[in-house]
Design a protein around this nucleic acid. Sequence first.
DNA 1: CAGTGAGCGAGCTTCCGCTTGACTT
Length: 769
Amino acid sequence: MIENLVIVESPAKAKTIERFLGKGYTVKSSFGHIRDLAKKNLGIDVEGGFTPKYIVPADKKKIVKELKSLASESQMVWLATDEDREGEAIAWHLFEELGLDEDKTRRIVFHEITKDAILNALDNHRHIDTHLVNAQQARRVLDRLVGFELSPLLWKKVKPSLSAGRVQSVAVKLIVEKEREIQAFTPKKYFRVIAKFSVPDGKGALTQLKADLSKRFDQLEEARAFLTKCQTSDFTIGAIEKKPMKKSPAPPFTTSTLQQEASRKLGFSVNQTMSVAQRLYESGKITYMRTDSVNLSKLAIGTAAGKIKGDFGEKYLKIRNFTTKSKGAQEAHEAIRPTYMDQSSVEGSRQEQRLYELIWKRTIASQMSEAQLEKTTISIMVSHAAERFVATGEVLKFDGFLKVYMESSDEEQEEEAKGLLPQVEKGNKLTRELIEATEKTSLQPARYTEASLVKKMEELGIGRPSTYAPTISTIQNREYVIKEDRKGIDREMVQLLLKGDSLSEQLIKEKYGYEKGKLFPTDIGTIVNDFLEQNFQNIMSFNFTASVEEEFDEIAKGGKDWPKMIERFYTPFHTKVNTATQTAEKSKGEKVLGEDPKTGKPISVRIGRFGPIAQIGEASDEEKPRFASLLKGQSLETITLEEALDLFRLPRTLGQFEEEELIIGVGKYGPYVRHKSKFYSLAKDDDPFTIELERAIEIIIEKRAQEENRNIKQFDEEPGLLILNGRYGPYISFNKKNYRIPKSKKPEDLTLEECREIIEKAPSRTKKK
DNA sequence: CAGTGAGCGAGCTTCCGCTTGACTT
């Protein structure tokens, strides 16, 4: 017999709570939801008032069985799932599925895992909130209807196995729209003028004063005219302005902000961040990592305050309470923070340590004083021109929270060495060292990274902390979106330089359009997006989620009947699905680019059976059309006639090498050189259309050298056992299996016995499926 | 490893939000 059975959602949480409650309490976890809609026939009886058909998924059978038997021998069952829509629903599903007795069941909630909070919860038990459960059912049913009616439509009209949904389709839309914004963007040229002056520092030496011209010139001639005026001008200090400024710390981490900062500061993908955080959570080092709350428990603030006072002193302490501002936040948990605020570092993998330290710093900083700065602005007058130069400097008067942490930003800003400015006074004359006017262009809109997409989704109220990372994976797995680096192009910019008496003009090189780890839409992503936009504008609108959330809130308050709400949505939606099924054309992104100058036949692009292709001629022609796949980085939307024609120039013969032809082509795995029926991949920088014979031969020779290096060692007694050099370093190959070599051993010194030992000891990979 | 691009049709794909492992590379 069990006195009290407490059920929570997470096993790590269960362990902690069991420790707090001690004897008389058995704490178990449900591992999240235990029931879901059946997958067959929508899992919803649409005609019968949208009645959901719930089943226990195969992987949840075991846990349900266990909980059921524990519940049956318990005197009291406490449903302690999270206090939000999903948590309430989990409690209800448990109640139903475990066949609990109303008199022997209590619903309790807490927002923080502290002894006080839990004991307090036990004293304040209540019943399951049916209205809140209904709001969850409405959410679940709506998502199922949208997803399971739109996806099959895409299978028919675009391509099998595609998917659409309330969240993922809008995420893709953000990326498609951003790309179009960038395509439509025309950079504006301007000239930025900077000057370097020298000033006596009062000790007989000179220091430098760097200043920006307050005006930017649109034309080269204007900039030249200004510099010419400067040639004969005097430069005098005008106004000097000093302004005190304050900087405040950012709130503690939520899932979204943690993903953003880990991406900016540590270079983690959102998946990486979540799995490292999961390990920290499971080992008890941080609080729960899927949260939208910025709230800290009193206990945490208390220990943080102690740590700050102890480490930095009283004046660094400032207790703050942050409030959540994100749309649709449900705040079932605390912010993400260290479990023990006095531990500034932990043991574990390098990644765990780095993420932990980030969390610790952010949390501690959130309870620290503002930083105080003094901003100085000096204006410098030019005797023969109306424009002024401005020099700005920032001096830190009190570091405050900056002692431990500074939030990063997504915008790549121009480096501005803002430091102390030299002591000058109004009326001082300055000596001109140099003035330069450099051509710049306005920045195009920034593409999304995984983390900045999460930020945007959170702003729009789309998705939840538990789904940000999976959604980002889904849209990449469906190949709607691809995460890529793009190398920039070098472009030449004009620079005017005034130094001494000479005014010179030169061209300088600048990298433009370099991108790292950015999200690009694929052709399929674009086509699916346009198809959905055309037919289902309401679901694709950015405030669809926000407006249904309002209705869910009303249901939760008891002011609305959920099946009726669903019906009002579903009736017109289903009609649109039917109409599109019958009338919409197949969407292949087809586009005619022009004519082939040789044959006069039309050249078009579209999605083919194996991806985007260019095509000369039509299927109905007597002669079969010619096909060529688009290259990586090209898209149906932006490819030009010339680029499409180029595709048909491959494969091409470059010349002879070792008395055999050398052919350049593009295959499944990218551009290659073919020689003596062997293939050699081109490097990233090589262009298959322009590559020359010499370079192609170089590639072949390089590859041969690499292959020669492959064999490190082999043994006459055991010819099947090889020590090889691979992509990930040296390894042992034996019987078609590969074995890792311990770092302590030098591969070239290994004996046959040692190799056999390594093979023996290797963990056997007996897999069963 | 380095092509392909037709059509038929059976049987499958798919959503969002809660949770962790058990897998392979």
